[in-house]
Structure formats: structure tokens, C-alpha cells
Amino acid sequence: MTDWIRPTSLAEAVDARRDHPDYLVLAGGTDVMVGAIDRPAPIGVIDIFGLPELCVCEHDDEGRLRLGAGMSYAHLLGDARVAAAAPALVESAREIGALQIQARGTLGGNLGTCSPVGDTLPVLLALDAEIELRGPDGTRWLPVDDFCTGYRTTALAADELIVSVRLPVDSSSREQVWRKVGTRRAQSISKVMLCASTHRRDDGRLADVRIGLGAIAARPLRARATEAVLEGALPDGPLAARAAQAVLNDIAPIDDVRSRADYRRATTARLIRRWVLHLAQTSTTTNTGS
């Protein structure tokens, strides 16, 4: 019979993980339970769903919003602090699964699976989020870009837990956009997704541009070549075209059951172009250069 551990505190959970690195860490189960009936039951489970310390959402002393890994999508959708700091994260959560999945699926589970189609990951990339990991030796923080290491692989060690996600203080002042392309709005796995964020300088030029993309490579990634084209530039039509060209060097899509590589390339380029055109249209500075 599967050994079932239900820790009542984070400290207990960390101890259980140290003692049983071979046990399954279970949150809402919306990833691990898919197809589980066709596999042997795990020898043990560390059940962290609803653990109070993993469900906190609070600002730290420096004003950074810290979101517990155990927060469900329903949780995220109902929290005004998340809406203020990370509207793009709320938008992504709204389109994940449907009510039933949103009630169980958690932020930590999306990170733990680290699928190329994990919807929150491009958002966390575009917001410079950091991930809090805790093990027997204490806590470490990793930029989300370093946390995702490849196709469904992460930097999480066998004796560590994902504890929280931290957003930089400046996330609420970033203009954020979230776009998911799929077959229908609910219950659909993305063909392409984009989250982008930027600041604008007083002269209207873009600053600290961050672009997270999903479903276009083995792992969610930052579009660094595109970011370099946009950084310090004034958004206008020609810039949109150059950025849309640059993004083709950032991605490596494949053909699969959900879409084709050429569709993904064309769609990613279009999403980038539309975002930059949107920035041009909403610019408060008159752009005399184009």
C-alpha cells in the first residue's frame, strides 16, 4: 500500500522530503493523476495540497509579492494583490483548464512539471520571477530561467520543495501582455503563448523588455534576441517588423499533434508584431521618427 504522509507544517514537509526523496510530492494532482491508473501506484506520497504555509500570498519587507507554491488558480484569480502586481498571471490563470482544474491545479505544480506548455511559466519569465526552494540545508532562490532546465526538467533537487514564487517590486509598474493561442479558450493546451512586459522611459523608449514564450521549444524560454532589438527603441511599425523577424532566431518549434512548426513560427512572429504595434499606438510620446 502506498505510504501516505500528510505534513501539517512546512518544516514537517521538508523533513519528509529529506527522509523520502523517492516519494511522490503531490499537490493538486492535475498533472500527476493523468494516466496514473495505468501506472503502478507510487510507493509513497508526500501530500502538500492545502498546506497553509504554502498558500500564503504576501508582500515581503522590500515590497516584493511572494506567492505560495500551493496557491491554486482559483486562489490566484481571487487575490487583489496578484491582480495588482501581475495582471498577466491572472489572465493566464483564467484560461487554464476550467473551474475543476482551477480548483486543484497549483502554481508549484505548474513549475514542478515544467512542461513546454505550462501556461504560467512564460509569465514568470517575463516578470523576472524568482523561485524559492527549500531543502534540508535551507533555502535558495533561483531565477525562473535557471529553474527550468529543459524538457520537463528542473533544477529542483530530490530533497527540495518549491515553496514560493517572488515577483520584483517593479512588476506592477510594467506594462504586461498575455496571449495564448489554442483551439478553444478553456481546457485547451497552447499552440503558442506569449507573455511580454516592459517599462517606458520618459522619452517613450522601451526599457527592461522581457519576453517569455511557451510551446515553441523544448522548454519555456526568454526571447533574448527579440528583447535586444526592442531594448531602448521607440515602438513603431518598422520596429515591430524587425522584432517579428528577430523572434524566429529565438525559437525552435516542432511539429506535434497540436500544431505545426511553421504555424508556430508564423504565429509567434505575429504575436510579437502585434504587441509592438500596440505599444506604438499606446505611446504617450509623439513618435516623429516614422
Binding site: 501516505w4 500528510r6 494532482g29 493523476m33 506520497v45 501530500d47 473551474l99 480548483a103 486543484r104
Partner: peptide, 18 residues
């Protein structure tokens, strides 16, 4: 679908221990 604490969830994805 069943309701757990009033919220709809998919019972095919919930291990009974939860």
C-alpha cells in the same frame, strides 16, 4: 465532477486519501 468543500473538481484526478 463532484464538489469538495463546495468547489467542483474532477473525481478521476483526486486520490481518495485527499
Amino acid at each position: 465532477t463532484v464538489l469538495i468543500d463546495g468547489a467542483p473538481v474532477n473525481s478521476c484526478l483526486v486520490p481518495v486519501a485527499q
